[in-house]
Design a protein around this nucleic acid. Structure first.
Length: 420
RNA sequence: GUGGGUAUAGUUCAGCUGGUUAGAGCGCCAGAUUGUGGCUCUGGAGGUCGUGGGUUCAAGUCCCACUACCCACCCCA
């Protein structure tokens, strides 16, 4: 199967790439509005970076990484998320010695060896942002607001923002102990899945769909009750900022992110349809990560947003995706002389910045019109014996069918005035 | 990683209990209209029936394996 894309990968074909441009254009505008600059880091990194940064115990590291040895014997991994590379670049590039905070965004492919299904691929693309060097809750609020602003710009309504705080190294261990004590007392009533979760990730049990587990989770201790004063205050401030910005949210103590590096704020932005929910954007604060990766003790916060999922939501919500990549003008010709002249005029249009094309298959005029129609050009320039004779071009408005003749010299100024 | 479903033209699908040259809609190309698109009509091109093996006089159809896709779970964007 040589003409088959590898499992879990997808082409973006020419007729659909405008959707990506639309999303990416909006992302670049918004990040500029908020003062973020682009960072581009390698597609692959040393495996240790992810093991350390993402966390040895996470599913991502334990079973989902595309890891291989290169020809020099180094262990290399295709990036399974965007933050670790940004952190590495922040340290390596000495960004900590520049004016803080550093605010950056990225658009990048990410790779995870998973079983593909709806909204899940082995290679997908993420838009992400990271802020380094600022511990204030206003930063947590800002990144959430940036994401929500993007959604509203794209005309996506009805997404749900859920926030939580999972504490810091000072208060989380205490909660962990309390939760495990509680769950231990109910372990025999819980589903087999949750029994396994108990050691690895007891927080996950709070989120189980089994009736018994749900009931048990209902009375479980809530992490928000165990936060230290600093974390509590941080979470309160975040909520005040969100209210100030008029961003609706729900506090959801069940949110536990899959990556080890989070501290304090975690959040998810969720698309739901029927029974199923899909996280479109997830992120939070990671105050210990830079230090963990060998840099100075630096706070950070950020999120990742799945672009395939975003476009999927866009389509399911039937939000309009304007097509801006289209041609403006198509030449239609009759005879060799006209064809050569059209080629020349076509070239001059393009030099003037007017997107234009002509027939390249030497077809009948009828076929050329059909082709023009299918491409959706708003305007067609017709060149035949008569027009060559009179040094004119006949212009047809494809929507109305109205035609007018115009001299060749005046063609470009005319088009510039009449094409939007 | 666990469980279920599906695999026939570019695409969406039909093909009854195995039985001659495998069909349709849409799309593509051409003509009706030799200088005019969208609507209509006519014609045409396009298929190793996912791959490999088996049962049978005979397999798109039945059996097995593999692969891929879809769906759910785990987990995640």
């Amino acid at each position: 199967m040589i003409a088959k894309a590898p499992r879990g990968t997808k082409d973006v074909l020419p007729y659909e790439s405008y959707k990506w441009h639309y999303v990416e254009d909006n992302i670049r505008e918004i990040t500029r509005l908020f003062g973020y600059k682009e960072i581009r880091t390698p597609t692959f990194e040393h495996t240790e970076l992810f093991e350390r940064g993402v966390g040895e115990t996470t599913d991502v590291v334990q079973k989902e990484m595309y890891t291989f040895d290169d020809k020099g014997g180094r262990s290399i991994t295709l990036k399974p998320e965007g933050t670790a590379g940004a952190v590495r670049a922040y340290i390596e590039g000495g960004l900590h010695s520049m004016a803080q905070p550093i605010k950056m965004y990225y658009l990048t492919p990410v790779f995870r060896y998973e079983k593909p299904q709806t909204g899940r691929l082995r290679e997908h693309h993420q838009f992400g942002i990271e802020v380094f060097g600022a511990p204030e809750a206003s930063v947590d609020a800002e990144i959430i607001i940036l994401a929500m602003t993007l959604f509203s710009r794209l005309n996506i309504k009805g997404l749900e923002l859920r926030i939580n705080s999972i504490g810091c190294p000072a208060c989380r261990p205490r909660y962990h102990t309390v939760l495990k004590e509680y769950l231990a007392g109910h372990l025999d009533e819980m589903c087999s899945n949750c029994k396994q979760r108990f050691e690895r990730n007891p927080l996950r049990s709070l989120d189980c769909k089994e009736e018994n587990c749900k009931r048990i989770a209902l009375n479980a201790p809530v992490i928000l009750d165990y936060l230290c004063d600093e974390c509590k205050q941080h979470f309160d401030e975040l909520q005040q900022y969100l209210k100030a910005a008029d961003i609706p949210y729900k506090v959801d103590p069940m949110i536990v992110r899959g990556l080890d590096y989070y501290t304090k704020t975690v959040f998810e932005i969720i698309f739901s349809e029927d029974e199923s929910e899909l996280t479109v954007c997830g992120g939070g604060r990671y105050d210990g990560l830079v230090k963990l990766c060998g840099g100075p003790d630096t706070p950070g916060a950020g999120f990742g947003m799945g672009l395939e999922r975003l476009i999927m939501v866009l389509e399911k919500r039937k939000a309009m995706i304007p097509e801006s990549d289209n041609l403006k003008v198509m030449f239609i010709t009759k005879g060799d002389k006209a064809r050569r002249k059209a080629f020349q005029l076509l070239d001059s249009l393009r030099r003037e910045g007017i997107p234009a094309d002509m027939d390249h298959l030497d077809r009948s005029m009828r076929a050329q019109f059909k082709y023009a129609d299918k491409t959706g050009v708003p305007c067609v320039c017709i060149l035949g014996e008569d027009e060559i004779e009179n040094k004119q071009v006949k212009i047809r408005d494809m929507a109305t069918g109205q035609e007018s003749a115009i001299s060749m010299e005046r063609l470009i100024p005319y088009l510039k005035d009449n094409l939007k």
